[in-house]
């Protein structure tokens, strides 16, 4: 159990999706102008990570891995479908995002209007596909992948909320013209990333 919590803490702070792997930078930069939208998108990412990573774990273990189809019939044990990984993962993600979108539209209309176009864009948020691919590459067990999903989601949420807060302050400062907007956003992210590197000293 402790080990799994360690995985979650590690993915939130030390191997943060945004600051260590730059995953999900597109929506991270685009949505962070408004704090509330950033908060909502962060929550949506947590939910989608928690849905897709365990789901992809099942698909990977029972369909895609070499020999994974042995449960169907012993003669299938030589089948290796792992080259289909990308296609299956992205299809799972696209359909779960569609589901999450429908649920949010039905039960949280305010959040739905705030997120607007960006909910469908979670499909192409690399943090989501990246989470599934890391789960695949690091061979997590089911429990580990759930905690990894939680950590990845919370880490991304934390990053975008922090960044949106800083960005709101920056709006009132006098910045060199060519650096305004995007250029400065990168440098702020870098500074946040350097701050997060401080967590690397934690021994788990």
């Amino acid at each position: 159990m402790l080990e799994m919590i360690n995985i979650a803490i590690k993915t939130i702070f030390i191997e943060n999706m945004v600051f260590a792997f730059f995953l999900g930078m597109c929506s991270y930069l685009a949505i962070s102008k408004n704090f509330n939208a950033a908060f909502g998108l962060g929550l949506a990412v947590i939910v989608v990570e928690l849905v897709t990573i365990p789901l992809n774990w099942f698909l990977k273990t029972y369909f895609l891995e070499p020999g994974a189809l042995a449960w169907l019939h012993p003669s299938f044990s030589a089948v290796d479908l792992s080259f289909l990984t990308f296609l299956v993962f992205i299809a799972t993600i696209a359909s779960s995002v569609q589901l999450v979108e429908m649920v949010v539209e039905r039960f949280f209309p305010a959040l739905y209007t705030a997120l607007g176009i960006f909910l469908p864009l979670i499909t192409v948020n690399c943090a989501i596909l990246g989470g599934s691919l890391f789960m695949d590459e690091r061979d997590y067990s089911f429990g580990e992948s759930v905690f990894f999903a939680l950590g990845a989601g919370i880490g991304w949420f934390l990053a975008i909320v922090l960044f949106a807060a800083v960005r709101q302050k920056v709006r009132y400062s006098n910045v060199v013209k060519p650096l305004r907007g995007l250029g400065l956003a990168f440098i702020i992210t870098a500074l946040l990333g350097i701050a997060f590197m401080g967590f690397a000293g934690i021994k788990l």
Binding site: F19, A20, F22, G183
Partner: peptide, 10 residues
């Protein structure tokens, strides 16, 4: 390290 990439692009 990762932050340097951000600074370079910035």
């Amino acid at each position: 390290l990762p932050p340097a990439a951000l600074i370079t692009v910035g």
